[in-house]
């Protein structure tokens, strides 16, 4: 297991050195970015079991902040990253707390409504560019603008952020926080009877989740250099975060990364196959995958994998126990 981990880490670190061209570098950077966003969603949706369908709000805030800081004040966009986190956190406290009084389907429905409201407001608010959105610096003024032609620097920045996020999640997962989250997901009533302050721990999950989703949004607009209401706050953004996490395995550490490694290349492929109109096909595939997942493998691919592995181990045990059986 340990050796496997080393090999995977090495593969991620060395991958850019074996690239045929920027196309694959860019796709790899997008995979990591998607994994960051989905891992951030995973803290609230996967571990704590609160299925937010409104995380685009945080992604959008994170994506707008750097470009707004740049267009309005001429500061390097990266200054917007902490601003995005701060605003997301504030939104979390203002909107998250009342929403948390709702549970299950009703919580999800409320998150959609809140996100759509914010998207509509942003689309009609001239200060933030209304429907057109915002642009970043056309050419990098200093390296602080983090505007690179090659995808490789983005790749390493994203890798570093993802590593930090996963390390933090791993640490929390095995501490009291993680146990309380999973208890809340399994049942709020029994969790409370065991002394779990449910609202407080849900809020912790939301704060972390919102903060890192905001970072994912910032990184997105730093790389792309452009943002509009649809790609920042659109409901499809929320859906993307969820499906990536759920495909790999919601509530597992590496689920979102696995999901991203499958879905992002798939999306790139369908888009290039069908050109501009391809996004329709992409979402047909998304929809199909989601339905099939929900119906057959709600635990995601990692869960399926673990079950297959333990079944194989079990068969091996049985075979070893009965050497004369055949």
């Amino acid at each position: 297991m340990f050796r496997f981990g080393i090999i995977v880490c090495a593969a991620f670190l060395l991958y850019p050195f074996f690239l045929p061209d920027d196309f694959y570098g860019r796709m790899a950077a997008e995979v990591l970015l998607a994994a960051i966003g989905a891992s951030a969603w995973n803290i609230l949706g996967g571990y704590a079991g609160q299925i937010s369908v409104g995380h685009a709000v945080f992604f959008g805030i994170g994506a707008y902040a750097p470009l707004l800081i740049f267009t309005k004040f001429g500061l390097p966009p990266i200054v917007g990253v902490p601003v995005g986190i701060l605003v997301s956190t504030a939104v979390t406290v203002v909107i998250g707390l009342p929403t948390f009084r709702l549970t299950g389907h009703y919580f999800s429905m409320a998150t959609i409504a809140v996100a759509e409201l914010i998207r509509l407001v942003i689309s009609n608010w001239d200060y933030v560019g209304a429907a057109t959105g915002l642009m970043g610096p056309a050419v990098a003024r200093t390296w602080l603008d983090l505007s690179f032609r090659s995808p490789i620097p983005y790749y390493y920045i994203f890798l570093a952020v993802l590593a930090c996020l996963l390390l933090l999640t791993w640490h929390l997962q095995r501490s009291r926080m993680g146990y309380y989250w999973r208890a809340i997901r399994a049942g709020e009533r029994p969790a409370r009877s065991l002394g779990v302050p449910v609202v407080r721990y849900k809020l912790y999950a939301l704060l972390l989740s919102a903060g890192f989703t905001s970072v994912a949004g910032s990184l997105y607009s730093l790389m792309v250099g452009f943002i509009d209401p649809e790609s920042g706050f659109g409901i499809l953004k929320s859906v993307e975060l969820i499906i990536i996490a759920a495909l790999g395995g919601a509530g597992s550490l590496f689920g979102p990364l696995v999901g991203a490694m499958i879905l992002v290349p798939l999306q790139t492929m369908t888009n290039s196959l069908y050109g501009g109109g391809g996004s329709g096909l992409t979402y047909i595939i998304y929809g199909g995958i989601i339905v099939l997942l929900a119906r057959y493998e709600p635990g995601g691919l990692l869960d399926l994998w673990h079950r297959m592995m333990s079944r194989r181990a079990h068969r091996a045990d049985v075979a070893a126990a009965k050497p004369h059986a055949s």
Binding site: Y179, P190, A191, G195
Partner: peptide, 16 residues
């Protein structure tokens, strides 16, 4: 019983 079915028995008790 309001068991946390997704957790192991030890994990259930650890929550307490």
């Amino acid at each position: 019983p309001a068991t946390f079915v997704e957790l192991s028995i030890l994990e259930n008790v650890m929550v307490g």
